[in-house]
Design a protein around this nucleic acid. Structure first.
Lengths: 348, 348
DNA sequence: GCCCTCTATGTAAACGATTACATATTTACG
DNA sequence: CGTAAATATGTAATCGTTTACATAGAGGGC
């Protein structure tokens, strides 16, 4: 592997001069500059980023710590991160880890010396307090709260979004509104549940415990919970699932049981994944700008990185938006499927 | 930031001894070992991976070069890669780049010194020949062919999968079978088209040019192509879309036009993304083990990394599997939706 | 008691870059 | 023409590790 020394020797100059040419730093005569460029190119010299970052103590890389999550969310959040990272000349070092203490700690240790900052996502509430690392590098917490810890955090407007969706169901005349909850111990799940309860209380509806079915953010969970709801003596007339995957499972269960949506049962989800609009009937959901979520997280992190982390800690939330389609029975706000798509979707 | 020197000074030993304790290399007395461990822990010392990899010339990191792709495929392939990478103590440095020459080259340059090998995905056929880098590091090409270049490659059994699906449509009695093609210049798209034509020829069906609609792997593309197909004087009775996204777009168009699936029109896709089974009717598709694809790519790469790349170049393909559901009209091979799911699907 | 082999530890040279400082050469100007 | 300033280049320290080699003491066999 050819190094800067090889280039220097070949061009009969010192490594310092070569470095100056490569980084366009310091004065170099035009002749030398041309010579060195030519030699470097001819020898196919490529700088060793590792060595460079050792001396400059800048890696131009951001670490991303993710829980083991699937699907659309995962890819969208990474896309958002990579977009802004790349725009600022940074790379992404991605690491999925179990959300337990040792998992996160191991991952964080491994990142030392290879990244300039870390975006950590650990929606599992119990694991959140484990970030008391000696992390002298900037950290942004995604979709989780940090009590007491000196880190920036970015979350979704879960509570408000859920509240608005349930309020919408209420406005359609529903009074028996069920919820399929998210995973236990999950921050987003807890917040969405809070929004649901808040909306019911505001509407003067007395909560009915059996209408709060537990789920785990999976299609299977939504399916099972729906079966249970259908078995109730007093069926609900509307189901609010804490995410779209569960809502999709619910739709399947209802279709199988011959229950008409939205006539006999309204269904709503959360996240507004791209496929929500392609369901039959198209699924009403709370839109979460996942890509922007990732982008904003990196923006916050980059600010911390360039300003040496000496700013006041920030807590931001990205706002959600109600997307009403046919599954809740209201007049479709958008033609489904729309002839024009907001975004190209390429897979494979 | 505390370094190994700080630990050495504090423990009143040399850095060599500290290093030996940390890496469990060379002989150290039990007393010293205990002392150093204690001091390192107390000072919250974390080794600097960058410095370490400079001297050992091992980064324990693999680069992943991806085109700008969306959705399920993206996340699944990364999951597969990360699984096996992590199992072998490696990290993933992910970089999305445009598939043009300068894009790939820039990305490859940036990887020098930070990774031990690279998995590069560039299904765009034109861009494929651009990998003539001085890449002295191992490279595995994913979903694309390399002619002449000394790299391992891993592809999907596109042709065979498409052929089997079309053959299945033929077996159901269809003779006017349309295809919605993938993006022009895309390797997977070309291969799937080849399989389609091959199956038709084998069945003695004369190809009808208007039945080969172009598409771009997006739902919108599938939607538009289907509208065009419905406008034909002689409509097809079956549509084979080169991926599921387009098939989903097709289903939407058919639903809107009041065309019954599968009675009036059979529809099949490719990839078998998780949502295929949740469509109405559930979508028949060619299953691609995306996660395994990523896993295998990393396996191949790791082999190259540990064996210093001195093996004969390999070309592998992962095999596909026909998954027949209701959209092609055959008796469903699996209950839809199944009560048990193969895999948990967690998003948010 | 001598020499050899272990074991435990330290010293210092890498790894591949950047950069402060020193030095040499040229230019400018009174 | 002499000297200061500007320009061009080289020397060597540095980043935080690992590791080959050197050294020193302990133990053992004869």
């Amino acid at each position: 592997m050819v190094t800067i020394k090889d280039v220097a020797r070949e061009a009969k100059v010192s490594v310092a001069t070569v470095s100056r040419v490569l980084n366009d730093s310091g004065p170099v005569s035009d002749d030398t500059r041309r010579l060195i460029s030519e030699v470097a190119h001819r020898m196919r010299y490529v700088p060793h980023s590792g060595a460079r970052s050792l001396i400059t103590s800048k890696t131009q890389t951001l670490g991303v710590l993710l829980p083991d999550l699937y699907g659309e969310f995962f890819s969208e959040v990474i896309r958002g991160m990579d977009n802004t990272a790349q725009r600022n000349g940074f790379h992404l070092l991605i690491s999925r880890s179990y959300a337990d203490k040792s998992g996160i700690e191991t991952a964080m240790r491994a990142m030392r010396g290879r990244v300039d900052g870390v975006v950590a996502m650990s929606p599992d509430i119990d694991a959140e307090s484990l970030l008391n690392l000696p992390s002298t590098i900037p950290v942004v917490l995604l979709c989780s709260v940090s009590r007491g810890h000196e880190v920036d955090s970015l979350t979704i407007q879960n509570c408000r979004g859920a509240r608005e969706m349930v309020r919408h169901l209420v406005s359609l005349g529903h009074t028996r509104i069920a919820i399929i909850k998210g995973s236990a111990g999950n921050y987003d799940a807890a917040e969405r549940l809070r929004g649901y309860r808040m909306a019911l209380r505001e509407a003067g509806i007395v909560p009915d415990p059996p209408l709060e079915q537990s789920g785990n953010f999976t299609e299977a969970g939504g399916y099972a919970a729906t079966i249970d709801l259908l078995a109730l003596r007093e069926r609900p007339t509307a189901i609010f699932a804490a995410n779209d995957s569960m809502a999709i499972g619910a739709l399947s269960a209802l279709r199988e049981s011959g229950v008409q949506v939205p006539e006999e049962m309204a269904v709503a989800g959360f996240d507004d994944i791209p496929l929500a609009r392609f369901m039959d009937p198209p699924l009403s959901s709370v839109h979460v700008p996942i890509c922007e979520l990732g982008a904003r997280a990196v923006e916050l992190l980059l600010h911390g990185v360039t300003h040496k982390n000496d700013h006041a800690r920030r807590r931001e939330r990205v706002s959600t938006e109600l997307v009403i389609r046919r599954s809740t029975g209201a007049e479709p706000a958008e033609r489904s499927p729309p002839r024009t798509f907001k975004r190209e979707t390429v897979s494979v």
